[in-house]
Design a protein around this nucleic acid. Structure first.
Lengths: 201, 201
DNA sequence: GGTGTGTCTAGACGGTGCGTCTCGACAAGG
DNA sequence: CCTTGTCGAGACGCACCGTCTAGACACACC
């Protein structure tokens, strides 16, 4: 979560040269840029090393795979660009969050990172585990808090539990992004209206 | 669509040996089995050739990539296992379709193929194009017909257009499958109730 | 029956990225 | 000073890529 955090807990060397922060940032940015410019297929460790002006071994010393590099950039970017609203437990803040999420996925380069990792998770179990533990689960915990807060405040009355409700809201957005479709404003509005304020029963 | 159809239109050789149907089926089944058993990461053309007992050249002669092999199996399997209801334009048939779709994605081995291709489409533009043209678009056309038929019959009254409605219904199912979550019956029911039978306005 | 024509298996080929390894240079701590 | 650890540079064997060649075989046509 902290800006200096990396994959594993920061090591505490007794002596020797410290980690080169410039190299770390160069790798992160190189991976990000290459993904956006040439796609995940062209994203190789050797290409990242070339682009970052860094030795391949330096990458392997700190990251077990290119996926973890992307995960580092994603965690930092998503925390900045689409924070989960925690202050105002209103239906409107949920709607705003979903709109921001939709724009993140379709417009923000960092959104491509999330889609790429979600995709790679289908191909590689390690990626799936890392993506959940380091990104999806923490975010989901905050989303749950957002929903239960708004429910307790009487702002919304979802039929489903918090997890299923969030998946019902996010699922269509993610699916449209995955299939390359745009996400019209009306879609988000309808989802919020239909799922968070159900007809009286 | 026909069982013998392959990637390109069936060639019309004037003479010479015809295509070996046994080899074609062996490749299809080998790809399917390898994907389910060892995941997409271990799915290589050479592995498929070994498993199918077929020369690599035979694969490259008929398929431009392993993705097209998977697409061939997916098109055949999905047509059999989750046909789009076309006869009875009722809300209940839509609900049944979604339930079948959910079970397909989570339980059926062929569902893994769809998830893998949806994932690969994020990494490779050619895969994205093929997946849309050969699988998603045709299915979507039938889904649209299903929705408009039910709407005309007065069975449902969706707020959104047919495309957005289908994405709103399928999105959560696909997203749960992508994240490895189960798809409870209540989720499908709530989606159908909330999106197809909106409160009067 | 001979001649083409196209598919099949088998395997070699150069190219590329993988992840590991070694090497020499360098910087900080003890 | 000397240990510890990182850095860049690059070689290594491995796996798979997609292409290519070679030879055997089956069918169509004449």
């Amino acid at each position: 979560m902290s800006a200096a955090a990396t994959t594993s807990q920061p090591r505490r060397p007794r002596s020797g040269n410290r980690r080169d922060e410039a190299a770390r940032l160069a790798v992160l940015h190189a991976a990000d840029d290459l993904l956006v410019e040439h796609g995940f297929g062209a994203l190789t460790v050797e290409a990242i090393a070339r682009r970052a002006g860094v030795a391949k071994q330096t990458i392997y010393r700190w990251w077990p795979s290119k996926v973890e590099i992307l995960l580092d950039t994603l965690i930092e970017d998503s925390a900045k660009r689409i924070p989960v609203p925690a202050d105002e437990p209103t239906a409107e803040s949920v709607r705003g969050y979903l709109r921001g999420f939709a724009r993140f996925l379709t417009r923000d380069p960092a959104g491509k990172v999330l889609l790429a990792l979600l995709a790679e998770a289908q191909h590689d179990p390690d990626t799936a585990r890392s993506l959940h533990e380091r990104c999806l689960a923490p975010r989901r915990a905050r989303e749950r808090a957002m929903l239960t807060g708004a429910t307790d405040a009487g702002e919304i009355a979802p039929t489903l539990g918090p997890d299923a409700t969030m998946d019902a809201l996010l699922g269509p957005i993610v699916y449209r992004a995955l299939t390359g479709a745009s996400i019209p404003r009306g879609l988000v509005d309808t989802l919020v209206d239909a799922l968070l304020r159900p007809r009286a029963n």
